[in-house]
Amino acid sequence: MGVQRMDNVGIVVDDLGGTIDFFLELGLELEGRATIEGEWAGRVTGVANQRVEIAMMRTPDGHSRLELSRFLAPAVIADHRNAPVNALGYLRVMFAVDDIDETLERLSRRGAQLVGEVVRYQDSYKLCYIRGPEGILIGLAQELK
C-alpha cells in the first residue's frame, strides 16, 4: 500500500508561545504540547542529545497538522526565515480561509505582513502570501463561489 495521508508539516521556531498564539488566531487548534528528548529521538532525526519543545496544531477539519518545534539543545544551526519565495527547500504552508480580507485584518494585529498583494485567480480564488511569526511564509486562499 502507498501513502495513507500527510501527517504534518514541521516548522522550527524560536518563540513557541508566540507562534502558537498566531496559529490559534488563524483558526488552528492546539492539539498538545510536549518535550521530546532521549536516545530514540536522536536516532530518528540524526541529531544526538536533542531536547525539543513541540506543539501540535490541528486544522479545524482534523485532517492536517503543523508541528511547531523549539530546540532547547542542540543550538539551531541555520536560519531560513527570510528566504524569498523562489528559494530552494521549504517554501510555505497554505491554508484555505473563508474570508481572506478578514483573516488578513486579524493576523496583521499579530504582526503578519503581506508579501505581495491579494490577487484574484480567474473566478476561482483570492490568494496571497504573508510573513507570519518569525518570518514563516504562509499562503492564504479563499475559494470564490
Results as ranks from 00 to 15, higher is better:
92 R>Q: 13
109 R>F: 13
107 L>W: 00
118 V>I: 09
101 D>A: 09
102 E>Y: 09
95 F>V: 05
107 L>D: 00
108 S>Y: 09
102 E>P: 08
98 D>S: 05
118 V>C: 06
117 E>S: 03
99 D>F: 08
93 V>M: 07
97 V>D: 06
114 L>V: 01
92 R>Y: 14
94 M>W: 02
123 D>W: 11
102 E>S: 04
89 G>I: 13
92 R>I: 10
113 Q>H: 02
92 R>S: 14
95 F>C: 04
106 R>K: 12
113 Q>C: 04
98 D>Y: 06
92 R>H: 15
90 Y>C: 09
101 D>E: 09
93 V>T: 14
101 D>M: 03
109 R>D: 12
113 Q>S: 14
103 T>I: 07
104 L>V: 04
106 R>S: 06
114 L>Q: 00
114 L>T: 04
122 Q>H: 07
102 E>N: 01
90 Y>F: 15
107 L>Q: 01
111 G>V: 11
96 A>G: 08
97 V>W: 15
98 D>A: 10
96 A>D: 10
90 Y>G: 14
102 E>I: 09
103 T>Q: 05
115 V>E: 02
111 G>M: 05
121 Y>S: 11
89 G>Y: 12
102 E>W: 01
110 R>K: 15
119 V>T: 12
108 S>E: 13
100 I>T: 06
110 R>Y: 11
101 D>L: 03
119 V>P: 11
119 V>M: 13
111 G>A: 14
101 D>P: 04
108 S>K: 03
113 Q>G: 03
109 R>Y: 00
121 Y>G: 11
120 R>N: 15
96 A>I: 07
122 Q>T: 05
104 L>Y: 05
104 L>T: 01
117 E>V: 14
115 V>Q: 03
97 V>C: 06
90 Y>L: 14
91 L>P: 07
108 S>F: 11
123 D>K: 06
93 V>E: 11
91 L>Y: 09
92 R>T: 10
101 D>N: 04
102 E>A: 11
110 R>F: 14
106 R>E: 01
123 D>H: 10
113 Q>A: 04
107 L>Y: 00
114 L>S: 04
117 E>Y: 09
114 L>I: 04
90 Y>R: 12
92 R>P: 10
112 A>E: 00
104 L>C: 02
101 D>K: 11
107 L>H: 00
102 E>M: 06
112 A>K: 00
100 I>R: 03
121 Y>M: 15
97 V>E: 12
89 G>M: 15
90 Y>Q: 13
111 G>Y: 02
114 L>P: 00
103 T>Y: 02
120 R>M: 13
123 D>A: 14
108 S>C: 03
110 R>S: 11
111 G>H: 08
111 G>C: 08
115 V>D: 04
104 L>N: 02
109 R>H: 11
103 T>H: 01
93 V>R: 00
116 G>Y: 13
99 D>G: 06
105 E>H: 03
100 I>K: 06
98 D>P: 12
106 R>A: 00
108 S>I: 01
97 V>K: 03
118 V>D: 01
121 Y>W: 14
95 F>L: 00
102 E>H: 07
114 L>C: 07
117 E>W: 07
91 L>D: 15
105 E>T: 08
120 R>P: 05
114 L>H: 02
104 L>S: 06
119 V>R: 09
106 R>N: 04
103 T>W: 02
100 I>P: 14
102 E>K: 02
122 Q>G: 08
120 R>T: 15
